[in-house]
Write a protein that binds this DNA or RNA. Structure first.
Lengths: 233, 233
DNA sequence: CCTTTGTGATGTTATAAAACACAAAAAAAG
DNA sequence: CTTTTTTTGTGTTTTATAACATCACAAAGG
């Protein structure tokens, strides 16, 4: 409802936005093809099976993207942070969404018409290359995750998830508290385990002084050792 | 050693080749940036950690692409067939390879310089869009596989792999024999299970008249039921 | 204020699949 | 043709983790 102007500015100028490589003219035109929407915490952005509405950029907030598996079990396949792009896979594959996006906190999301992306942006080869790079990185991430989630043991998977969250969202000013607050269930869905096992293993990690837990507030005490646990499997 | 000319022609003109969308001039120039190499069965095309040598197209043969996981356990993340592109993820991500490619049979592979791709091909927005589409489809596949491999039980995973192989490589003239001959170990590595369990479960499937096995020759007798087993988990 | 609902915590049991062990058969090498 | 190596097949044991069962506590709602 507010901050819309600064949201547009971010999308156009922020170094981390894919659109910052556009020419001034292209940026000007983009303004006519953008709409911004505010979402409250735990709102659906799109659902598995939905027809994609456009190319989306998360302006502020956090979003989880998950797939529904056997017996409704959710697997979080990606976490998005500001200036991250979402829903673009389905657009370029010309398919419906194969995953669901839900906000983790209040968020603002920009929706850019596919028409603009296809008929303007992609004509700019720097933009194309940047998108190709985004896809390549995400594909690499997905492939690595497949191996981790299938082969690592529970401790390794949880350690990897904690490191992932630390790298993605960073820390609060104390430099140890994870700047993301997820339910145990979400942590479990990110790490391919049951909620009970996420809770149990987090407790074990706390006992081992790798982390401290205070509700949803997680402090990383020993990143090096978490890393070893993750790499070991 | 032979068939090189027809190999080039395939790459330029086959509808399934990404390069068929290039203009005649671009195709002409591409000829100066291609090299063709023959590989024998079970040869490495590239290894995890290698610097990518170029954009590759599998002209003839079959290639498996796998990642090494915990304790050296291999996970096959992709199977490639003629006109499939390989090694492109690392190029666009500007990273070293994160997976290893090995031929399943004698194969011919074209290597196109990245210089040509970046400075010529990507300027053609139809080509860019096609590549973006390839990436989008592969990412969707990877995400779906992550969920299948982590959540489905052994029978479901094996059934899914058999269906995958059938869709990818098709059947011999009898319309039932899979047109791909893999070791039990490879089937296991594709399906995230141990070799023993792949062998055992294949035998079970044969007993249930879902398939017949004769060495590495697998006949699919009841695709519908395999599909149900796969979907059920 | 009490009731309901959601989340977190922990112990117990059940089970799917890995790990292990050993043959037999097939393929490759000498 | 024999020997060696690789691949396939099968039974047994072990183990990691899901499933289940409570319980405690906090938050939300009437």
């Amino acid at each position: 409802m507010w901050h819309f102007e600064s949201g547009i500015k971010e999308i156009l100028e922020n170094q981390k936005s894919v659109f910052h490589v556009l020419t001034p003219e292209e940026k000007e035109e983009l303004k006519n093809h953008i709409s911004l929407t505010n979402y409250r915490k735990n709102e659906y952005v799109f659902k598995e099976g939905d027809k994609p509405s456009g190319f989306m950029v998360l302006v502020t907030g956090k979003v989880k993207i998950f797939k529904e598996g056997v017996g409704g079990r959710e697997q979080i396949i990606r976490m998005s942070k500001p200036m991250g792009i979402i829903g673009y896979r389905a657009l370029f594959a010309d398919e419906n969404h194969i995953a669901t996006a839900v906000t983790l906190e209040d968020s603002m999301i920009a929706n850019i018409t596919m028409d603009f992306i296809l008929n303007r942006a992609v004509k700019n080869s720097e933009f194309s290359l940047l998108l190709l790079r985004k896809f390549a990185l995400e594909l690499g991430f997905a492939n690595s995750r497949t191996v981790s989630l299938t082969q690592k043991h529970i401790r390794g998977r949880l350690a990897e998830s904690l490191i992932l969250l630390a790298e993605k969202y960073g820390f609060e000013h104390d430099n140890t508290t994870l700047k993301v607050y997820m339910s145990r269930e979400d942590i479990a869905n990110l790490s391919n385990m049951t909620t009970s096992n996420a809770i149990r293993t987090l407790s074990t990690f706390a006992n081992e002084k790798l982390i401290t837990i205070d509700g949803r507030k997680i402090k990383i005490l020993d990143l090096a050792r978490l890393d070893r646990i993750s790499k070991l499997g």
